[in-house]
Write a protein that binds this DNA or RNA. Structure first.
Lengths: 148, 148
DNA sequence: ATCGTTGCAAACGGTTTGCAATTCG
DNA sequence: CGAATTGCAAACCGTTTGCAACGAT
């Protein structure tokens, strides 16, 4: 992706005849600062707290917008809820998710990516994106578990 | 997994002090017959139709039970809803999901599986299960799309 | 001024829970 | 018989939507 995220976002909006509002700027800013995954509710609380009003609906609407624009990606937690992370200058990666503490470890593996491409071709499937999530326990939690 | 699913289920229930009821039998039966993924709602409708009453709640409760027992696995559709498939004598596999027609293609690749194990070890992560879903368009739908 | 955007609150859809009636073992 | 299970309807919770007020260009 390009250098200045806010700039890129603005250009994107412009090209679609959409407007850059305070809320949109703030939400993207928060996403950029938080280097981990953030839930819609966290965004709502964080921004509603510091600054003036921000509706939950706006959070979801903006997140959709950003996702569609390809600026953020969504991850699904085991309980069905979701989190978002920005994609500016972050290479593609997948996740290991701790079922106990919800901690997320990022990983990426070129061989796996390549195999996916090949498999898709085999099935004459046109891949758009994928989700590769390994659920289990992080080091800390698995130690805690065996200690019991 | 073992030979007779219903038997295995019964044994599982017994070992936990639980009971084998008409509803539980029917739901497992339906899952075994349907070789694809089935949604809770589909189960509710199919069984509520042919036989007498069956509550939605029971469907969910039974599905949880079966999942916890390791007899079925859940898959998440792009829209957030879920489907279930039984695991009796079906080898592990992952999914390619068509974003247009929701069709599901199953795939499995030993190399990918092995790499996952290795990566987990690297991060001192104890894997329990994983979800590897490739979203895109199946042959049919991608042809339709380019035809426009 | 003009459209897009916002906040609110009500609607939604899938999933869950409390409870009295029922069923399995 | 007694504990587990069921169906029902209400509760839930994350997400979406309709709408009148608001704000960016």
């Amino acid at each position: 992706m390009k250098s200045n995220p806010q700039k890129v976002f603005q250009q994107y909006l412009e090209s679609k005849g959409l407007k850059l509002t305070r809320q949109r700027t703030q939400i993207l800013e928060l996403l950029l600062e938080a280097q981990t995954h953030v839930t819609p509710e966290q965004i709502y609380r964080a921004l509603g707290a510091k600054d003036a009003s921000l509706g939950r609906a706006t959070v979801f609407r903006t997140l959709h917008l950003l996702e569609e624009a390809g600026f953020v990606s969504k991850i699904h937690f085991p309980d069905g809820t979701s989190g978002y992370e920005h994609k500016f200058s972050r290479p593609h990666h997948d996740h290991m998710i701790c079922v106990d503490c919800r901690d997320v470890i990022e990983f990426s593996n070129a061989t796996i990516e390549r195999l996916q491409e090949r498999l898709s071709r085999e099935f004459e499937f046109t891949p758009l994106w994928h989700r590769h999530e390994i659920f289990g326990r992080c080091k800390k939690c698995s130690l805690q578990k065996t200690a019991l």
